[in-house]
């Protein structure tokens, strides 16, 4: 009898959890942000995962006793979490537009563009379609993958193609840059437009080709200290590290370009 009752209780609690599950990410964020002053929480775009993790290690080694916690994710999601009260110290976004939603809410001011990312044409190692320029992508015999316009690499690709006055009919509009790269890597498409950093991160599995029109679709990455940062000094020091030569070295090695 007792056992049956406790089973029912467990079920009931599971249900109530399911009903209010949407708030769970907020609680997780606040848990990492609160606590000792020697702790810093950084919200950063997913494309910064490798570089910022490296910079976080460097920061911790020069600020002994400080713990840097990262929350990597889609810039739009991060911005939404910040405007809903997540107590983060630093926000590094993959686009000025997402940063703007945070500054518009009065939660950050004077963001600085710390790097930019440009597009490259990614082709399989053997480049079967002999792609050399953006114009080659307009050949109907060349199978092209682009990111969907809803995601940043897709928006950038559209901008670059518009600037060049070219019309490309892709075979697919992929949901993210990783999926786009997979198609190139497996040779299912002859070319794709992705970020230079993604080509480098693929570790040589695909070949990157620069093209002049990429200048028309540069993606700026702004960074800012948040006004409600629990430890504003630490947050400022981290931003300084990112903007320093030391920070730039780490970022350019990964394919980012100086602004």
């Amino acid at each position: 009898m007792l056992r049956r009752l406790s089973l029912a209780a467990v079920l009931a609690s599971v249900l109530s959890l399911a009903a209010c599950g949407s708030s769970s990410s907020d609680t997780a964020a606040s848990a990492s942000g609160s606590g000792a002053a020697k702790s810093l929480t950084v919200f950063a775009a997913a494309s910064l995962t490798e570089t910022f993790t490296e910079l976080g290690r460097q920061f911790e080694s020069t600020h002994s006793g400080t713990k840097v916690t990262f929350n990597f994710g889609s810039s739009a999601t991060l911005a939404q979490q910040i405007t809903q009260g997540a107590p983060a110290g630093v926000f590094a976004a993959a686009s000025p537009a997402t940063m703007k939603t945070v500054t518009d809410a009065g939660l950050a001011s004077a963001p600085t563009v710390f790097v930019k990312n440009t597009l490259q044409i990614a082709v399989p190692q053997d480049n079967p379609a002999k792609v050399e320029s953006l114009k080659d992508l307009t050949d109907p015999k060349v199978k092209v993958a682009l990111c969907a316009e809803q995601v940043p690499c897709g928006a950038a690709a559209t901008k670059a193609l518009d600037a060049a006055g070219l019309k490309v009919t892709p075979v697919t509009l992929e949901q993210d840059v990783k999926a786009t790269l997979t198609k190139v890597r497996l040779g299912e498409v002859d070319a794709a437009l992705v970020y230079r950093t993604d080509v480098i991160a693929s570790g040589g599995k695909v070949k990157g080709i620069d093209f002049p029109e990429a200048e028309q679709a540069v993606n700026d990455y702004p960074i800012a200290v948040l006004t409600k940062a629990p430890a504003p000094d630490l947050a400022k020091q981290f931003v300084d590290l990112v903007l320093s030569q030391q920070g730039r070295d780490v970022l350019t090695k990964a394919g980012f370009q100086a602004p």
Partner: peptide
């Protein structure tokens, strides 16, 4: 892949709509 009218089914449209 995902291309409207050819391979973009509802679940794919839902996923991409979630982005923006």
């Amino acid at each position: 892949g995902n291309f409207p009218g050819r391979t973009q089914t509802m679940p794919l449209a839902v996923y991409l709509a979630l982005e923006t």
